[in-house]
Structures are given as C-alpha cells and as structure tokens.
Design a binder for these strands. Structure first.
Length: 621
RNA sequence: GCGGGCGUAGCUCAAUUGGAUAGAGCACCUGACUACGGAUCAGGAGGUUGCAGGUUCGACUCCUGCCGCCCGUACCA
C-alpha cells in the first residue's frame, strides 16, 4: 500500500534505497527521478548515476548497473536490466500496467493525489497594493491575480494562508486630498455624500500638483545655493502651493489625532475606494475581502514605539538627520543603500510601515513564510525591509525562534502591443473595471460566433467565465518576473496555451457525460476498475499523476506558470486521447466504462487546477 | 558609476532548477474526419539560445568579460 499515488515518489524511495545499498558512502544522493520527455525512452528515468560516478570513483554505466543490482521495483516497474541504461547512464523505467492502474485508483479521491503538507505552515500573502483615492488601472491587475493564485496553490497544498491587502491609506498624500476636498466641499464644488472614485482620483492628482509643482523648484533652488533674493522671488511665486502644502500638513496632524471632521472625510475616501477595489476582486474571482485589509493606517499607532525600540537596541542610527538601518552586511542582504525609517522632520516612511507589518505578521500572527506579490520595481525596497527586519530580530518566530522565510514574488509590467507601458490611444490609463468589462464582452462575442445557440443570459455568464480565464491565464501562464504584453486577441484565442483553450478542454469532457446521460448510460462505470490500454490512455494517465508534483513545484517556486504549463499539457494529452479513443462509441462496455473513468479524472484535475489558479469553470461555451 | 532584471524559431512564450535530438502555440505548407464539441489530431518547415571564453561526461541553465534593452539607486508612497 503506497503512501502516495505518485509513482515518481515511490520510485524515488526505491532508488534512494538501492543507491544506499550499492554505495553506502553516498547514501544521501538524490535519485533524480523525472518523467521521461519522450515516451520512447520510457515512463520515468533516474539521472543519478552520472552525478554519482565521480563521487564513488566509477564509470557512470557501472554505477547504473550497481544501482540496478540493488533495486527492488518488481511490483511497479517492468524488470530493469542493463538494457534500461541509456546514453551516459540514464536509467529508463517503464511502469507495469497494473501498477499504473493501482496508482490511478489511489489518485482517484477528492485530494487527487495531493498529500497535505506536513507540517502545515502558516503563511501570509501580501497582495493588491491599492491606494486610497486612486482609480484602479492595469497596473493593479497583476498583484491580486498572481497573489491570489499563489495563495490558492499553497492552501491546496494544505497550508494556512492569510491574505493581506496593504492599502496605501495614510500619510501626507491622503492628507492633501482630504485638505483639498474640505475646501472644495466648503465652496460647494463637490458633494462629499455622493462622491465617486473618479472625482477622488482627480482630486488626488490636483492635490499633488498644487502641493508639489513649485515645491520641487524651491528645493532645487536651495540645493544649488541660489541667493536669498532668488529664493524670495521663488517663494512668493509658490505661495499658493505652499499654502496648500501647509494646509495639507495641518490636516495630516489632525488626521493623526483622529480629528472627527478629517477622519470622516478619510472614512468616506476609504469606503468609496475600497468598494471599487473589492468589486474588482469579486468580478475577477479573486479571494480578497474587507477582512484582509490591513492598511498603513493600522500600523500608524505602532510606529513610534517600534522606532524607539530600534534606536534603543542600536539597530538604527542617525544619518544626515534621518534615522536609518544599515544593511551593508551579508547577514542583512549586503545592501549598500540603508533602509530609511524616519525622515529628518520626524515623519515615517513606507519602509517604516513595511517593517512594522513584518513585525506584526511574524510576532503577532506567527507567520512562517511571508510572500509579497508586488511589482518587480519594488525589489530594492523589499530587500531593505527584509534586511532591516532580520537585523531587528522581527523576522524570528516568537515561539520557535525560527526565521520566517520572506520572499518577493516579483512581477513585471503590463505592456501594450507596442511593447511600451499599457495605455489607451489617448495616453490615458484605462480603468481596470472597464478593461475587465471589455474582456468579458469580447469573450462573449467570441463564444457567440462559435456557438450561436446560446441565449443572451447564458452568453453573459459564459462571457464572464471565459473572460476571467483569458485575463488571468494570460497573466499567470508566463514567467511572472518578465514584462508581458497585453493583447485581447491572444488571450482570447481558443487554441494554444490560453485560458479559453483549457476551459474548452473541460467543456468537451463534461459534454461527454451529458451525452452519456442522454443515451442512458448508467453509473456503473463509477465502480469499474481503472485501466489503460491504448498509448493515448497511458499518456493521459501519466499526465494525471503528475498533478501533485506540479502543485508542489508551483508552491515552492511561487511560479503559477508551472501549474499552467502542466494543465496545458494535461489538456493536450486529453485531446490526443479524445481523438484516438472513442469513449461512448467504444467497441465494448468495459472499455467504455474504463475510458469514462479516465475522462472523469481528467475533468476533476482540470477543474481543480483551474480553481487553484482562481479560474472558475463552465459547463458550456 | 553601482545594484537588480531581461535577451531562446518571423511573433508570443516554455524548458521539471546541470540531463538524452532546446519544446509548444500563432502565422506558413501537407495530411486525417459525413465528428463523444474540428475550438481537434498527425506531419513538415522554421535555432550558432545576444557575443566571446571557462567549468563539466553533459550548459539555455553555473563562472568571467563584453553588447543591447528595462528598472532601481535614502528623507514621495
């Protein structure tokens, strides 16, 4: 009775034992079992002999032969002899049909071969990264899509995940908006009771402009040591801006003191922004709710004490009037640029908040792994924050003393088809909600041309499902660290490595079962023994059994495209099977039922995999 | 300047972390079916993996040096 349905695991154990017997001095060697790339070679292979050869001072083929003399795999593989040794020392393995059937039987449970991680870990995924008062645009697409997919993969592997939406909801930028809104409301230009995110977005940009437009010039003048006369002229010139700036600073102080009026406006901005944000999550089937919000404001009350702690313990030092944590040490990431945690004027920065967040996540929540689904351009910032947390000891688990694993799941930018940052023709950035609706609408149209019989209501739902699949899969299916080119046409293609293609593969399988029911095929197949006869059946079965491995590798690397590639290959294996192995028109009932079982498993794995990616399935399209 | 990332077929992307002949899709050719959803399958053509060295039985992968593009380089977030 194998502990796992994955023959690869069992083979790895057997090969490890054989290696230990043959070469006790190298008993720790990795047996290096992988699926064969081409079926001609076999089903699985061990690549251990080559690496072992040097270590034990023998020729690779001799090592391979020694392993085979000590191997015990008669129950699951066809007999291994020197004929199975190929090339420089690959050992090719073919599964016995009954072992493959047995593996399918083990695999065919709701877990689909996934053994829950032991021990399960508690992990936090940082995702979304929205800012109050700013409209969501394409730049906000990848973090929730990638972060949620990573969270789902890890959950599927048995870990406990807490999502954290680190909302940019605090500091001078927000105070500037509040200050401006107060003035606009007072003069009757806007109605705070019915304000929209578009209006807030405008106010945000205008507030930035009026406060910073000329401040930059003033800074430059000081920097270059211009005379007092020039400075005076400049200062007069920017008097208006300065006034707005001073008002914003006053507002910030009020906000920090929880002044009722300022806070009421803050709350309004918060609610309007978060509604749009959470609506987008819901529309995209991203599993993030209000409960996952932990904005910068929630850390504000903790910052002063934390910084005092850092000073008291000598972690932070003053530098040019500011307070920094030096990280120019291999233990802290060997980063030349220190992490700035307090400005000369006493204000805190986003690094301060991020360090504070790590402290809370590890010390209070007990997280063992912290994952940041954030733009690749933030890499230095995150490395600094990680380094500072390590130096401060905040990343050590409160009970076990173990360091939390901190990782930046970095992603590249979304580009337009011209290879430049994604913008509309007029140069504006598209609202994310509009972009999503356009995707759904195009998806619905694409489905309609292929299946004109669908009703409008069906098309609406299917358009959303296909649209989510297209949008998310395009984002998830390539190496996340690279920039990717946004193209409706490519993501909505129904052939190739796309979301719609995977949905289609699943729809075809489900269609078989619908047809089976129409033809009065009963449920007897459900108790038929698993088996594979035709090559296409075997390849499909082998592909199915790779599912747990694909999930594991994705969870380890935090690279959802690995799971995507796997699902695409599974869909491909099913298509070959579908082409070569008639199911309902099989020559006899036994092979029909046995093929139904394969179809059933393929549907389960596809649906499960899509769900893990955050893509809902559909029955028709 | 320093640091990080990227460079693979005409295009968009993979390559199980050092393994067998570098794989898919699109586009381009050629075949298969009066079809369990052809939105498919089989095959062909397409490559000096940016360049040059090095390590290795074996390199897209690791090391060194160049070239090109992107990003980041403390008192914004």
């Amino acid at each position: 009775m194998p502990a796992t349905s994955d023959p690869l695991q069992t083979l790895a154990e057997r090969f490890a034992a054989a290696i230990a017997r043959a070469f006790p001095q190298a008993a720790d060697a990795d047996p290096l079992i992988t699926p064969c790339k081409t079926p001609e070679h076999g089903d699985y292979q061990s690549n251990a002999a080559m690496g072992l050869a040097k270590r034990v001072g023998k020729k690779p083929r001799e090592v391979a032969e020694a392993i085979l003399l000590n191997i015990d795999v008669g129950d699951l593989a066809e007999p291994l002899s020197p004929a199975n040794i190929a090339g420089p020392g690959f050992i090719n393995i073919r599964l016995r049909p009954d072992a493959l059937a047995g593996a399918l039987r083990e695999f065919d449970t709701p877990a689909l071969g996934v053994t829950p991680a032991s021990p399960a870990q508690f992990m936090i995924v940082d995702l979304m990264g929205v800012n109050l008062s700013k409209q969501m645009h394409v730049g906000h697409l990848r973090s929730p899509v990638i972060g949620d997919a990573i969270a789902r993969v890890l959950e599927r592997l048995g870990h406990t995940i807490k999502r954290q939406n680190h909302v940019g909801d605090w500091g001078l930028p927000i105070a500037m908006v509040i200050s401006r809104l107060q003035r606009q409301a007072a003069s009757g230009q806007i109605n705070l009771d019915h304000i929209t995110l578009d209006q807030l977005d405008t106010a945000y940009r205008e507030a930035q402009a009026e406060c910073q437009r000329d401040m930059a010039g003033l800074e430059a003048a000081r920097k270059f040591g211009l005379g007092p006369k020039v400075l005076a002229e400049l200062e007069e010139q920017v008097a208006g801006a300065t006034e707005a700036f001073l008002a914003a600073r006053a507002t910030l102080i009020k906000l920090q003191a929880m002044d009722p009026e300022a806070h009421a406006i803050w709350k309004k901005i918060h609610d309007v922004t978060m509604k749009v944000c959470l609506d987008v999550c819901r529309t995209l089937n991203v599993n993030v709710t209000d409960a996952d919000s932990a904005g910068e404001s929630s850390y504000a009350p903790e910052l002063a004490a934390m910084v005092d702690d850092l000073v008291a313990r000598g972690i932070a030092q003053t530098s040019d009037g500011a307070l920094v944590v030096h990280l120019d040490d291999p233990a802290f990431g060997h980063i030349k640029e220190p992490c700035l945690i307090r400005k000369t004027d006493g204000g805190y920065l986003y690094a301060t908040t991020d360090v504070c967040a790590i402290r809370r996540r590890v010390q209070k929540f007990g997280a063992q792994r912290l994952i940041y689904a954030i733009d690749a351009r933030q890499n230095l910032h995150l490395r600094q924050v990680f380094g500072a947390s390590i130096k401060a000891g905040y990343s050590l688990h409160p009970r076990t003393g173990q360091p939390a694993r901190m990782e930046h799941a970095a992603f590249g930018s979304v580009l337009g088809e011209d290879g430049k940052p994604f913008k509309t023709r007029s140069g504006e950035s598209t609202k994310l909600a509009d972009l999503i609706q356009e995707t759904f609408s195009r998806a619905g149209q694409a489905v309609k041309t292929r299946n004109p019989d669908l009703s409008d209501a069906e098309l609406h739902d299917i358009g959303a499902a296909v649209g989510i699949a297209a949008l998310k899969y395009a984002d998830l299916s390539t190496d996340r660290v690279k920039d990717y080119i946004f193209s409706f046409d490519r993501m909505l293609a129904f052939e190739g490595n796309t979301g719609p293609y995977l949905l289609y593969a699943l729809v075809r399988i489900r269609s078989i079962f619908r047809k089976a029911a129409e033809r009065g095929v009963g449920d007897a197949w459900k108790t038929t023994a698993h088996a594979t006869h035709a090559p296409a059946e075997k390849q499909l079965a082998l592909a199915l059994l790779r599912y747990p491995g694909a999930l594991k590798s994705t969870g380890e690397s935090l690279e959802p495209h690995r799971l995507c590639t796997y699902l695409y290959e599974l869909a491909g294996a099913f298509s070959v099977f579908f082409d070569q192995c008639p199911v309902l028109a099989a020559t006899d009932e036994a092979s029909r039922d046995q093929r139904l079982r394969l179809c059933d498993l393929a549907a389960k794995v596809l649906a499960d995999g899509l769900n893990v990616l955050g893509i809902p399935a559909t029955d028709r399209m």
